[in-house]
Simulated scan of single mutants.
Amino acid sequence: MFVRVALCFFILILRLELGHARNNYEIIMNNLKCRAVKPSAITEMTCILHRKRIPIVAGRFILNETFHQFDIHSEFDLFKKDNTRMNVAELKMDGCKYLSSMYENNILGKLFRRFRKATNLPSGCPILKGKLYEIRNYTFRSDEYPPNVPQAKWQVRTRLLRREEVFVEILLEGELVYNT
């Protein structure tokens, strides 16, 4: 009987711990830049980093023409202790399909559900000419990312292309720091 009670208590404690698990690290964003490479395609483009620790970002843009198709090219790099760059991932994807995937149930569902609340981006193409699109005060939360990731400095460089021509560049630089 004691073993059964002890086992039930252990399972209850384990469920409580797993149910409220938070990552023991913070995401710090040191830099956010966006640039219209082809200004004739974009009327307005702004990116703002409101807070570095538990980062809050905002952005807005207005297009000069309707986009029925675009591509996203992203490179994710980590920096070693000697400050050399190590490329971790290079992604090339259809931007319209990426927008629609934010509205599906996927592995990043929790993150995308919160992101959708902070933006008025469409759920696919077209992206309309003359409409103001915004990301309003999106907060990066460490509990939405995998546990046990290594402490590191990182950089994400993203280019948005249309017909193989770059029209926007976005740069995110930050670090992941464990709370000790």
Rank of each mutant, 00 (worst) to 15 (best):
I56P: 01
T46Y: 08
W154C: 07
P39T: 13
R15F: 13
P126D: 10
L63W: 02
N24E: 13
V177D: 05
L161V: 09
L128R: 15
F115Y: 15
L49E: 07
F167T: 02
H20Q: 08
L78G: 06
K33D: 14
L14Y: 04
E44G: 04
L160K: 05
F61V: 03
V57N: 02
N105A: 10
R162E: 08
I135P: 03
L121Y: 14
R85W: 03
A89D: 12
Y98T: 13
L121R: 14
V156D: 04
E169V: 12
V3Y: 05
T84F: 10
C8Y: 01
M93L: 15
N30C: 00
M93C: 09
W154F: 15
N106E: 05
L171N: 07
P55T: 03
K52C: 01
T139A: 12
E165H: 11
R116S: 10
G59K: 06
S100F: 06
A41S: 13
A36T: 10
R85V: 14
F167Y: 10
V156T: 09
L12P: 00
S123C: 07
A58P: 08
N83W: 09
V37P: 02
L78Y: 10
K153T: 13
M102N: 09
E75A: 13
R113W: 07
D71H: 08
S100D: 14
F112C: 00
A152T: 15
V177H: 08
Y98C: 06
R53Y: 11
L7E: 01
G59C: 02
N83A: 11
I28P: 00
I72D: 04
Q155I: 04
R159I: 11
L108W: 13
L172M: 12
L91A: 12
I48F: 06
E134H: 09
H50F: 08
V177A: 13
A21E: 12
V149H: 03
I27C: 02
I135T: 10
L14Q: 03
I127E: 04
D77R: 12
P55M: 02
Y178E: 13
R116L: 14
Q69V: 06
I11P: 00
F61H: 05
R136W: 08
N64W: 07
N83K: 14
N64G: 14
L18Y: 07
V3A: 05
F140Y: 09
V37F: 03
R35F: 11
E134S: 05
V3E: 04
S40C: 12
E165W: 06
I27K: 05
